[in-house]
Simulated assay, not measured.
Amino acid sequence: MPSGDAAYRFRIAVEPAALLEPGHALPAGFAAEMRLGHRDFLETRWHDSRAVAFFELNAAFHHGIVAASGNRFFLAATEQHNRLRRLLNYGWVLGADRVRQNATEHLAILDALESGDHAAASRLLRDHLRAAQALTGELARLRGAA
């Protein structure tokens, strides 16, 4: 089993649940800031030298939508996990297609949250994390075969 598999199972259990917390509300300006950052990655040519910037935008997105739950336990778990991810993922080699897919999925989650459909946002987030989990597992298998 890939080492990242347990981490994704944890995230799949925690992050979508945070979007279903009573009173979940994005802070003013968060969605606009995230849209701007994600559109930048959609509209400019990807190169691996931008991996750290993409990771930080990705981490900020996940942190922000969980923080909006108002549940300090979800937030503390996400903050700790982001610290661990930062240690392991700064060397991401994702490729343009995965970056576009990730940004597009994040924007769809924002759309659902802004429309007030937290159940749809939670499902989209779960699907997003499962897709990332599958890709991570496939990359680990390919590295193991090389």
Rank of each mutant, 00 (worst) to 15 (best):
M1K: 12
G4T: 05
A6Q: 15
A7W: 07
R9M: 02
F10C: 02
I12N: 00
A13W: 06
E15C: 03
A17E: 14
A18Y: 01
L19R: 00
L19E: 00
L20S: 12
L20A: 13
L26V: 09
G29H: 11
G29A: 12
G29E: 06
G29T: 06
F30H: 10
E33F: 09
M34D: 01
R35A: 05
G37R: 09
G37N: 07
H38T: 13
H38W: 06
H38R: 14
D40S: 14
L42H: 03
E43P: 04
T44K: 13
T44Y: 09
R45K: 13
R45F: 06
W46E: 04
H47Y: 15
H47K: 13
R50K: 15
A51D: 02
F55Q: 13
E56V: 15
N58E: 06
A59G: 08
H62T: 02
G64Q: 05
I65A: 00
A67S: 15
N71I: 03
N71P: 07
R72G: 11
F73P: 03
A77M: 13
T78A: 08
E79R: 15
Q80S: 15
R86Y: 15
L87V: 11
L88N: 08
N89K: 05
G91T: 14
V93N: 07
L94C: 06
L94R: 05
R100T: 02
N102V: 07
N102R: 06
T104G: 12
T104Y: 00
T104C: 04
E105N: 13
E105F: 01
L107P: 06
I109L: 07
L110Q: 04
L110R: 02
L110H: 01
L113H: 02
L113R: 05
E114K: 05
S115G: 13
D117R: 04
A120V: 05
L125G: 03
L125V: 07
R126E: 10
D127H: 02
H128V: 02
A132S: 10
T136A: 10
G137C: 05
E138V: 00
L139F: 13
L139G: 07
L139D: 11
L142P: 01
G144E: 07
A145D: 09
A146L: 15
